[in-house]
Design a protein around this nucleic acid. Structure first.
Lengths: 109, 109
DNA sequence: GCTTTGTGTAACCATTTGGTTACAAATTAA
DNA sequence: TTAATTTGTAACCAAATGGTTACACAAAGC
């Protein structure tokens, strides 16, 4: 359903708004981690991290599989394409100002 | 100070997390608007929009100038470069999966 | 069976967030 | 000066957010 993917897109922006969640994604960019491994990188309690992971799973940014009692988390960057697509319409603005700056510098020679 | 620009970066992610604020930025992408013009596009009250604008100003995404009693708001996309830079490290992931898909499709011919 | 390990979740709490109404302030028009 | 226009802000409120502790549950080890 379109409505749901809109909500999903909406949720992705919320998901990456939190610095702890961005840091988790950063960890998973390197390799998959268990929940405990992830939690070990933060001061806050494991349940707090567990909640962040639940949210990241709900928007599809983290996928998991069981391995014994452990749960392996791995990154799925695909939902970030929504953010990238949103940014697309704004890039020309800072590119324009960059060209303006370039012109300014070149004219100064 | 570095700390401050880190906080600024942090705040930009928070700023674009809200759909109303993203919509405001979308409006300003077309042209500059007065506060009332912006508020006219939303159901919520003008003070609510005013608060959003204050936040957007605080992170530098909106800049204003007075014109009579009115206040003209215009977009400054520059702070979004922080988001773009953050995304940079994740693009290769969906590009990789895209290449995978491309290979898959090409192999099917 | 029982215990240990790793994880999820319920219940609760303080803070933040996004909204409202009422009012203040600044500029222009009369 | 007085009134009208446009905006900002203070005070308040409900809901969401991010954190905690205590406990439940599933898989592996004994």
């Amino acid at each position: 359903m379109v409505t749901q993917s809109l909500k999903r897109r909406e949720a992705v922006f919320r998901a990456i708004a939190d610095p702890t969640r961005r840091q988790i994604l950063g960890l998973l960019r390197g390799r998959a981690h268990t929940v405990n491994e992830i939690a070990g990188n933060f001061r806050s309690s494991r349940p707090a991290i567990s909640k962040h992971l639940r949210l990241l799973r709900s928007v599809g940014l983290v996928e998991t599989r069981r391995e014994g009692t452990a749960r392996i988390c791995r990154l799925n960057a695909e939902p970030l394409r929504a953010v990238d697509a949103w940014l697309h319409d704004y890039r020309r603005f800072w590119r324009e100002s960059l060209r303006g700056l370039k012109r300014y510098v070149e004219d100064a020679r």
